[in-house]
Design a protein around this nucleic acid. Structure first.
Lengths: 149, 149
DNA sequence: CATTCCAAGTTCCGTAAGGGAACCCCGTTT
DNA sequence: AAACGGGGTTCCCTTACGGAACTTGGAATG
């Protein structure tokens, strides 16, 4: 929806919302990450209207998060994650962690992550890039950076 | 906007979007996290319409992410993060990381995080809760969990 | 050669949600 | 008694979503 443009704000959260802030965009990325790559498959999996799916895919391609890749001599296309898009999946992984913890209820998480490096079922844990210790909301101060308005 | 309800899907991402998927919600959380706690202050800071701000705040309170706290004998209220909401800020921190990396450009990040534990300027780094090594999009397999549909 | 098939969109319409400005309520200050 | 100020509510207009039907372009079928 988003009549207001967030991209101009001096805030990386707002700018990120300009890319994936519309409803459906994160779920489209999730599908592509999980291997649901084609228009009709995504449409059926999500139950999204074809019109809106077209808009979202075009936007995500314009933003460099997805790329449109032919998979046949006929005009047939798949959507793949770019490096920029793959990086964005970390946001989804943290959302998954939160939903698992606060919304899954008795049934438990719908999806589990198995970490390649250790082979264990695990979840993502935010840590400090400098010292490696946990880095949660209360563990940081916010300071103006070089790109501050 | 979101006529489609995501909350019923067997997906923690979709369920999380039901809480903070509408436009503005993440920015409202950001403001509260950063200490902008009152209706008029949030409204002025974001430039959001008062009507939509009322709706979003009510929704976030209903979802248990914010709480409405009186700060005066007069009917005056602030919004504070609950434990559930504080946990959700981790999603914002990862969004910040992504926006800083891919969208900030020459000017650099608008905001810096200083980690209390080490005192250094740093960013959040997703790691495996089991082995502590990096955990990015390509480092996991997705498996059906106990709450799968 | 004409018909059917299919993926991938595009078009159209009705409805619901956002934007903006004005208004309201209620306790306080002057 | 009048003005003030925070925290909303109401109204109208415009835009975006949902859904279904239609289109396009190349293959496969008969």
């Amino acid at each position: 929806m988003q009549r207001t443009q967030f991209g101009e704000m001096a805030c990386s959260i707002a700018r990120t919302l300009d890319v994936i802030g519309e409803p459906w965009s994160p779920l489209i990325l999730r599908d592509v990450w999980a291997g649901v790559l084609r228009f009709d498959h995504i449409q059926a999996d999500l139950g999204i209207s074809r019109k809106v799916l077209t808009e979202r895919l075009n936007h995500l391609v314009e933003q460099g998060v997805l790329e449109r890749v032919p998979y046949d001599a006929r005009p047939r296309y798949e959507y793949h994650l770019t490096a920029k898009g793959t990086d964005l999946v970390e946001v989804l992984m943290v959302m998954t962690r939160w939903g698992d913890r606060w919304l899954a209820g008795e049934a438990g998480p719908p999806v589990l992550y198995r970490h390649h490096a250790c082979g264990q079922i695990a979840h993502v844990d935010p840590r400090c890039s400098h010292c490696g210790r946990p880095m949660h909301a209360a563990d940081v101060d916010l300071l103006p950076g070089p790109g501050a308005a």
